[in-house]
Design a protein around this nucleic acid. Sequence first.
DNA 1: AGTTAATTTCGATAGTTGTCGAAATGACGA
DNA 2: TCGTCATTTCGACAACTATCGAAATTAACT
Lengths: 122, 122
Amino acid sequence: MDELIKIAKALSDRNRVRILKMLESKPMCVCEITSVLGLATSTVSSHLSLLRDVGLITDRKDGKWVEYQLKNGTKSLLSNQFMKLVGDALKDDEVILSDIEKTQKVDREIITSSTILKNIMK
Amino acid sequence: MDELIKIAKALSDRNRVRILKMLESKPMCVCEITSVLGLATSTVSSHLSLLRDVGLITDRKDGKWVEYQLKNGTKSLLSNQFMKLVGDALKDDEVILSDIEKTQKVDREIITSSTILKNIMK
DNA sequence: AGTTAATTTCGATAGTTGTCGAAATGACGA
DNA sequence: TCGTCATTTCGACAACTATCGAAATTAACT
């Protein structure tokens, strides 16, 4: 029962569900996800480690970035079923559709330069 | 997305999941559920109203009792799918199996009568 | 080695949740 | 109508959670 409860908890936060759906489009680094969600980096980071601990996503180093992606195939049947259900339930969701659009445009290289610009403006 | 989140929240508590699985056996009143779970009546009552608000169960008056039961058929596709998934995930769960056994023995008339009978029933 | 950028960890905080016991409500039967 | 019993509501409390900003960590590039 514990696994079920843990997965349900993971899915019971709006921002975590948004993250999962974004990762269906492509693997993403923390700063990209942060830029789409508009939350503090530390908040996103902690959502990501929770999702990793539950076994829904994996992470790997990519230079100075950490890339997160959905854990497909090898993950337990249960989380697969849950993800399918979530996908089904949200296939017409406004927020999710807009997130996916942003996801496709967002680019870790560009985020950097805009950060630099932001600092110059100070 | 809100419905998904609400259902996930409902399923993210151990005792609520146990209640849902018990109700698969038969409709039950608050005192019967309380007697199986071993929680305070008020706690069980608030779990039940949450589950009702989410749309997973319904209630109806039956004399001095309030009978709760799963909302089948007419409920939204989403909660149907979730319930199927939960059933699947827990079909061999020790706690759930033991709950179901107790559920079949429990009887609202006997709960009232005496503490001794309550103990025998366990 | 020092600088910069991305991420994680830490500390604080406000809000939510699960739980209980007590009080209030509602229904039945004497 | 009164008392009893099942249930709900209320008030309190401890535990947990989502969030932020700051500090620490990690990695790449001078």
